[in-house]
Simulated assay, not measured.
Amino acid sequence: MKKIARLAFLASMTAAIAGTITAAPAAAIPHCVISSAAEGCFEPVGDDITVYDYAADGKRSVVRWVTDYGRSGECQNYSGANTSATCYYDMAETGKVQLTLGLQDGADGAFQTLGTSPWFPIG
């Protein structure tokens, strides 16, 4: 009888623990475009875009973004290699966003595209 009670207790504890472990919702996972020189990520919680610069090439890493409802902008990291910059936005939670990662020589230099993401849900 003690063995059955112990098994019942263990089963109830396992169920209680399993009920507290949940995976992060898909919307909470950052969506990124990655290259060897730079990385750009969109964080759905907060609508933040972070740009990482991995190359000591004298260029800034840039994420240009566009929504499916007509907004656009860009987030630049001009701090140099092995740094990041985060830009904070407030986007419509029902929309989608697309990122284009690139390098740029100065504020107004030519934009070199490194990659473009699929459309990510914002909220």
Rank of each mutant, 00 (worst) to 15 (best):
S35G: 10
A5Y: 09
W119M: 04
A28C: 11
F42K: 00
A23T: 05
K59G: 02
A24T: 04
Y69S: 09
D108E: 10
A11V: 12
D48G: 06
K59Q: 13
D68C: 03
I34L: 11
L7E: 10
G80P: 07
Y54A: 14
V51Q: 05
S35R: 03
P25N: 13
R64E: 06
S79L: 14
D47Y: 07
D47H: 14
G106W: 05
D68V: 00
P118N: 09
T116D: 09
A18Q: 11
G106L: 08
V51Y: 06
E43R: 11
S36F: 10
Y89D: 07
G19M: 15
S36H: 09
P44G: 15
P30I: 06
I122H: 01
H31K: 06
L99Q: 00
R60T: 08
K3S: 13
V62K: 00
A24H: 03
T116C: 09
G40D: 03
S79G: 13
N77F: 05
Y78S: 14
T67G: 00
A38C: 01
M91V: 10
K2E: 14
G102V: 02
L103P: 02
C41E: 02
D105K: 03
G73D: 05
E43V: 09
A85R: 11
R6V: 15
G70A: 06
Q104D: 04
G19C: 11
Y54M: 09
R64C: 00
G109Q: 01
A27S: 15
T50Q: 11
T113H: 04
A15S: 10
S12I: 15
D105P: 03
G102Y: 02
W119A: 04
I21K: 06
H31Y: 10
Q112T: 15
A110R: 05
G70R: 03
F111G: 00
T116H: 08
Q98E: 04
D90Q: 08
K2Q: 13
G58F: 10
Y88K: 06
G102W: 02
T20P: 04
E43A: 13
G95Q: 04
T20L: 15
S36L: 10
P44N: 05
S61A: 15
M91E: 09
D108T: 14
E74P: 01
P121C: 08
G80K: 06
I34N: 13
T83N: 11
V63W: 00
S117C: 11
K2N: 13
F42N: 05
L99H: 01
N77E: 07
T113Y: 02
M1A: 14
A16P: 02
N82G: 09
F9Q: 06
P118G: 15
A107D: 07
D105I: 03
F42I: 04
I49G: 03
G19V: 10
K2Y: 12
G80I: 08
A107H: 04
T67W: 05
T86L: 11
A110N: 11
A55L: 12
P121H: 07
I4D: 12
V62E: 01
A26E: 10
G46Q: 06
A16L: 15
A26K: 05
N82D: 14
A92N: 14
R71K: 14
T22I: 12
K2F: 14
C32E: 09
L114E: 08
A107L: 10
A55H: 11
I34Y: 13
S36A: 14
P25D: 14
A85L: 10
A37N: 05
C41W: 00
I49R: 02
W65A: 00
T50C: 07
Y88G: 09
C32K: 03
G73P: 02
Q112G: 13
A110L: 08
A37P: 03
